[in-house]
């Protein structure tokens, strides 16, 4: 295929796509005019129905918790896939992680000091976001990634060995699996105690208080642990490949 034909094909396709996009945007409801029934319904009944003042969390972990479980296992399967693809193969050796043999150059003392000063506050922020998902924006997923980032900062501060101590491979793997299983167990609890999978079977409490919204905080905690484990496992696999695994 020569250059002129390719450009012609692209221009034709691009013009068609642009035309269809313009037509589609023309048919959209006006900005700020939501036409569906569900958003309005949840806005009116959500707080009374779940006691969660963050209705996004209420939707994710109560109204459509089943979907969220599917999403959680997508993440689980994706990270599992990375771990399998990046496993140590025949013909590869690992350098001694504790020796001076690895290629990690370390970091400047300014970056190291800043990183180590940030580890604690970022960890607290992550724990806050995980546990307050039912009251304020955030929840298990967002907080879980922040928690994982706290351990990652130790790694960026040049403390590769400390990163391995904070987040040992076995613990990260176990955390990921336990979190995923914990969330599924919350759903099973609904089936056992209330007759419906993911039914909210714990007392709802007062909207806006820390211990409220029944199973939602428990789900958030489980998802937080799962997501933190998943991201740490992902980064561990990538950093091991870049820093430790060498071909023989």
């Amino acid at each position: 295929m020569n250059r002129r034909l390719r450009i012609g094909l692209f221009l034709g396709g691009a013009a068609l796509l642009a035309g269809m996009l313009v037509a589609a945007v023309g048919d959209l409801p006006g900005f700020g005019h939501y036409p569906g029934p569900y958003g309005i319904l949840i806005e009116e009944t959500g707080v009374a129905g779940t006691s969660a003042t963050d209705l996004v969390t209420a939707v994710n972990f109560d109204y459509r918790a089943f979907d969220t479980m599917g999403e959680e296992f997508i993440l689980f399967a994706a990270v599992l896939g990375v771990a399998i693809v990046l496993r140590r193969r025949r013909g590869e050796r690992a350098e001694d992680e504790r020796g001076d043999d690895h290629h990690f150059p370390g970091s400047s003392s300014a970056l190291g000091a800043l990183g180590l000063a940030l580890v604690g506050p970022v960890f607290v922020l992550g724990a806050y976001v995980v546990t307050h998902g039912q009251i304020t924006p955030g929840g298990g997923f967002q907080g879980g990634v922040v928690l994982a980032a706290a351990a990652l900062i130790a790694f960026l501060a040049g403390e590769y060995v400390a990163f391995k101590v904070i987040a040992p491979h076995a613990m990260v793997e176990a955390g990921e699996a336990a979190g995923a299983a914990g969330f599924a167990l919350v759903g099973l609890g609904g089936l056992i105690f209330a007759g419906t999978f993911f039914a909210n079977f714990i007392a709802l409490g007062t909207p806006g208080s820390f211990l409220s919204s029944g199973t939602i905080p428990i789900s958030n905690l489980a998802v937080g642990i799962e997501v933190a484990g998943a991201f740490l496992l992902l980064w561990t696999e990538f950093s091991d490949q870049a820093l430790v695994v060498r071909s023989k």
Binding site: P137, G138, L152, W235, Q241, A242
Partner: peptide, 23 residues
Amino acid sequence: APDVALSQIVVSTVALPLMILLA
């Protein structure tokens, strides 16, 4: 959409660039 914004900050400023750099 603060919930989405929170995920976006961590995933796109920490997780994604790090994976690209390590690769």
